[in-house]
Design a protein around this nucleic acid. Structure first.
Lengths: 255, 255
DNA sequence: ACTTATATGATTGATTTCAATCATATATTT
DNA sequence: AAATATATGATTGAAATCAATCATATAAGT
């Protein structure tokens, strides 16, 4: 019999969590613990494997990695639905064989979360974000890491070497995060982060900035780009919100 | 046909180590990697399971870790004491303010484990190993990552970009791993790994290779360096073992 | 040197696991 | 309210996996 979609997803999430804890579970135990038939268990496993959350063996399933960056993941927090929605806007732009740069920060990370499911053949991912690395390693995409100095608190790489490493790349699309947007443009607090983001823009055919609505009107220490730069804003803010902050909606994609 | 006992035990140890690294291996791969029949593989697995070193699933086997520090730490496996002993030899050479390169692989990783306790002020660590990054991030050392292409299975960075990034550094001491040492020199299997190690040597005042005794006499695909190169060997092999493999003990430090 | 012990690969029949198919109950959509 | 879509458990034949057995070559013991 059919069952509500959220029930299905909740059960699968439960199974994924269970496997995170237990490392390996034989099929039999999956069935009994979740009180589902073997057929359903198999179907759940197929789906979880497809989205890269688990791996299967004959007779069971296991998880390869545990969360090495829990603090970061937590930061995704409860806005994750909205961040996901922003990230989803980017997906159509990621064509097979292209190269995408995924910046540090939680919003670009949301895009990384969508990639295993999206299954874009031949996609190259360049990043300075260790959580992105951890998330995508072992998956299908080919993964490349900028060198640089680690900022442990943020789990990302910055510095002169990172900027130089960036110059080695030809990026099709850069996905950037921001801490604030104002009439003046797009802002982040750390100058080193902005330096790297500028390098990313300079080496990308197109760049997207993903910002959730609460960041409107905020200013920070370093200006990434003014609105004249060839930068597209993706936000869930309303026209009204953008207008009241005097942000030109020309180059903006809303949800 | 019967085979020497030490051969059997060595193979089983190799399999155990392999499983420590790979987490899970299907039976088929176990057979092909070790070049043994299915029957022998099964018998090895039975024994390894009996002694509690691995767990089996239908069609394969995996290792389970106590999940206090679920990451790479346990992957050192049961040689960790010996690897630690090798790594400890290096510590006196790491002076305050110096820069050390820690290569991928479990033996150099053993050195990383010692660093937090050693509390060497102003130490800079450069690495291509993600487990090293994970281990040391948040600690006192300043941590720098080579860029490059991720080899997910090994959790390390290699490739042309990694080599180029290496050239940016002035390293005081490089800590390298190896898969085998023979009269001819020091060996590793992957040419890309060796390329990076050579770059590390070229940019280092001194380089150490850490190898446990069972690697003596093994050859692999790519030669890292012959004994003429300015490379110091640190091993727990005995004089006798070294002599019988015709390895010059001049530049060797034993435990 | 001779005997004994045992590690190995091949084979085999029993068992387990798998993916596909189907009827059905119930979400979801219209 | 009716029509459609789909998640589920049961079934089934095919494929994979398993443990046991056997002959043999060679290490280990005497």
């Amino acid at each position: 019999m059919r069952v509500a979609k959220n029930v299905v997803e909740a059960r699968r999430q439960l199974l994924a969590d269970l496997l995170q804890n237990q490392r390996y579970l034989p099929l039999e135990q999956i069935c009994s613990r979740l009180s589902i038939s073997e057929a359903t268990a198999r179907r759940d496993l197929v789906e979880l494997q497809r989205s890269g959350r688990i791996k299967r063996t004959p007779g069971g399933a296991f998880t390869e990695f545990s969360d090495k960056f829990p603090s970061f993941t937590e930061r995704l927090g409860r806005d994750s639905d909205r961040k996901n929605a922003l990230a989803r806007q980017v997906l159509p732009h990621l064509v097979s064989g292209s190269t995408v740069y995924i910046d540090g920060g939680t919003t670009p990370y949301a895009l990384a979360r969508l990639l295993p499911e999206a299954e874009i053949p031949g996609l190259k991912v360049v990043t300075n974000s260790l959580p992105v690395v951890e998330l995508l390693s072992g998956g299908d995409v080919s993964l490349h890491i900028l060198g640089g100095d680690l900022v442990a608190r943020q789990s990302l790489l910055i510095g002169e070497r990172a900027v130089r490493a960036m110059r080695d790349w030809k990026i099709n699309i850069s996905i950037l995060g921001a801490e604030g947007i104002t009439q003046g443009g797009i802002w982040n607090s750390a100058p080193e982060v902005v330096a790297l983001q500028k390098a990313a823009m300079a080496n990308s055919k197109r760049s997207f900035v993903l910002v959730t609505s609460e960041k409107i009107g905020h200013r920070a220490g370093a200006l990434l780009a003014s609105w004249e730069a060839g930068l597209r804003l993706i936000t869930d803010a309303t026209e009204r919100q953008l207008a009241s902050a005097r942000i030109p909606s020309l180059k903006t994609e809303r949800i």
